[in-house]
Amino acid sequence: MNTIRCKIEQVNAFNEAVYQVILTPEVAFDFDAGQYLCIVMGEQDKRPFSIASAPSQTTIELHIGAAVTESYPMQVVERLQNSDYIDIEAPAGNAQLRHQSERSRLLVAGGTGFSYIKSIVEDQIHRQQHIPTTLYWGCRTEEAMYYQSIAREWHEAHDWLTFVPVVEQANENWDGKTANLLAQIKQDYADLTPYDIYIAGRFDMVGAAREVFREIGVDEAHLYGDAFAFIK
Rank of each mutant, 00 (worst) to 15 (best):
N173Y: 11
E122K: 09
A54F: 00
Y72R: 14
A28H: 13
Y19E: 12
V166L: 03
E156I: 11
H99S: 15
A17Y: 10
D84Q: 14
N15C: 09
I231Q: 10
A92M: 11
D226S: 03
A221I: 02
R152E: 09
E26S: 14
S149R: 15
Y189E: 05
P132Q: 09
A170V: 00
S104A: 13
P165Q: 08
L161P: 06
P132A: 11
R5L: 15
L192F: 06
R152N: 08
D45R: 04
E143M: 10
Q124S: 05
S101C: 11
S83N: 10
I216N: 01
R79Q: 15
G113V: 04
V206G: 02
D159L: 11
G110C: 04
V212A: 09
A92G: 13
F114E: 01
W160P: 02
R202A: 15
H126E: 11
F163V: 10
H222N: 13
M74A: 05
F31W: 14
H155F: 08
I199N: 00
E172A: 14
A227L: 10
Q57W: 07
G201R: 02
S119A: 14
A13K: 12
N173L: 12
M205T: 12
L23P: 00
E102C: 07
E172P: 01
G42L: 06
I51A: 05
R98M: 09
R210V: 03
V40H: 01
S83A: 12
F213C: 03
A13W: 08
K186I: 02
Y189K: 07
A190H: 14
T3S: 15
A190P: 00
S83F: 03
A28L: 08
I8P: 01
G207L: 05
D123S: 14
R103T: 01
I150S: 12
Q20W: 11
A92E: 09
L107G: 04
A33I: 10
Q128D: 14
F49G: 07
A54D: 04
S83L: 03
V166M: 04
Q75T: 15
G138Q: 04
D123E: 15
A221W: 05
E168I: 00
L62V: 03
T133S: 09
S149F: 12
L107D: 01
E168R: 00
E153I: 11
A170I: 04
I197E: 01
E122N: 13
V77M: 06
Y146H: 10
E70R: 15
